[in-house]
């Protein structure tokens, strides 16, 4: 397909491959390094004498009898009870994704099918809300939540995260539903369906690709959130990210940095799998807004 004129000269090709190799190292090496290091003892991972200690692990061998040790993971998951945070994260993510997709689908569908002017203003409002940094809203939640005694529990955080998620969900699903031909539900309505029945029986069966992409981003927002979860959850209800931040406070003094390293690796692993499975959807979701706008 590529004509001879379009084949780049050898030097340029070499430069391209070299650059991509450098970028790959920059992007992937920190993760691999931390994964490898998380199975060492602190004196090896943070070695004063020689950086190759983190690779070979002489002190790990001395203390544990082998070059790899799960001590960091045991400390984090068993001793510091990181599994609680993992369960909390799972609960929060599950309910945030389900709720925000349910109400977001209804709202996004309505926005795409109503031709009135107010839909534009609703979308603009959603865009403004989307730009609000969550941390600025947190100051507004604190006082009422204390007054009503709902601070610190998971349901409150779930509802807040769902709401913060809505603007983005609405925009994604709105543009997705606009690509589904209006004639589909129009014809269902001609056959005597109400709007909701048309939605339920005609649109729902074909909407899953868009919903899955949107759901991925809802999941990422809930999973990665630090501002809201660290401020609105009490100590025993913390999710993984604020728990890691809390580790930094306590474990640095106790000299158990490896607990935090293990926790960080544990929190990154699910994202690895997610990107591996849903790479195509993530890329299409990221570009959806850009190519249209």
């Amino acid at each position: 397909m590529a004509s001879k004129a379009q084949t780049p000269p050898l030097a340029l090709r070499a430069a391209t491959y070299g650059f991509v190799a450098v970028w790959l190292t920059l992007a992937a090496f920190p993760f691999l390094w931390t994964l490898w290091g998380s199975f060492k003892v602190e004196l090896d991972f943070f070695s004063i004498t020689n950086w190759t200690d983190a690779l070979t692990g002489p002190r790990t061998q001395e203390t544990h009898g082998s070059a790899f040790t799960g001590a960091g993971y045991e400390g984090a998951w068993v001793q510091e009870e990181f599994w609680r945070a993992a369960i909390n994260t799972f609960i929060v993510c599950f309910f945030v994704v389900c709720t925000s997709l349910t109400i977001g689908t209804l709202g996004g569908y309505a926005l795409s099918r109503s031709g009135f002017r107010y839909t534009f203003w609703l979308l603009i409002t959603a865009l403004i809300f989307r730009a609000m940094p969550p941390i600025t809203l947190v100051a507004g939640y604190m006082l009422p939540f204390f007054e009503w005694n709902v601070w610190g529990i998971l349901p409150t955080t779930i509802i807040v995260l769902v709401a913060i998620n809505q603007p983005f969900t609405l925009w994604m699903l709105h543009s997705f539903f606009q690509n589904i031909p209006k004639e589909l539900d129009e014809s269902a309505k001609v056959d005597g369906c109400t709007q909701f029945q048309a939605f339920r029986h005609v649109i729902v069966p074909v909407m899953w690709p868009g919903v899955i992409t949107t759901g991925l981003f809802s999941f990422l927002l809930a999973y990665n959130d630090f501002a809201v979860t660290s401020m609105l959850l009490s100590e025993s209800n913390r999710t993984m990210v604020p728990e890691i931040a809390a580790f930094l406070g306590t474990t640095y003094t106790e000299g158990n940095v490896m607990f935090a390293v293990a926790a960080v690796v544990s929190a990154t692993a699910p994202l690895f799998v997610l990107v591996m499975v849903f790479q195509r959807q993530i890329v299409s979701g990221l570009t959806a807004g850009a190519v249209k706008g």
């Binding site: 993760f31 990422l220 630090f226 990210v241 890691i244 931040a245 929190a267 990154t268 990107v275 890329v283």
Partner: peptide, 10 residues
Amino acid sequence: LLPMIVTPLV
């Protein structure tokens, strides 16, 4: 994608 997907804190 990895540097972007991981939590900023992590």
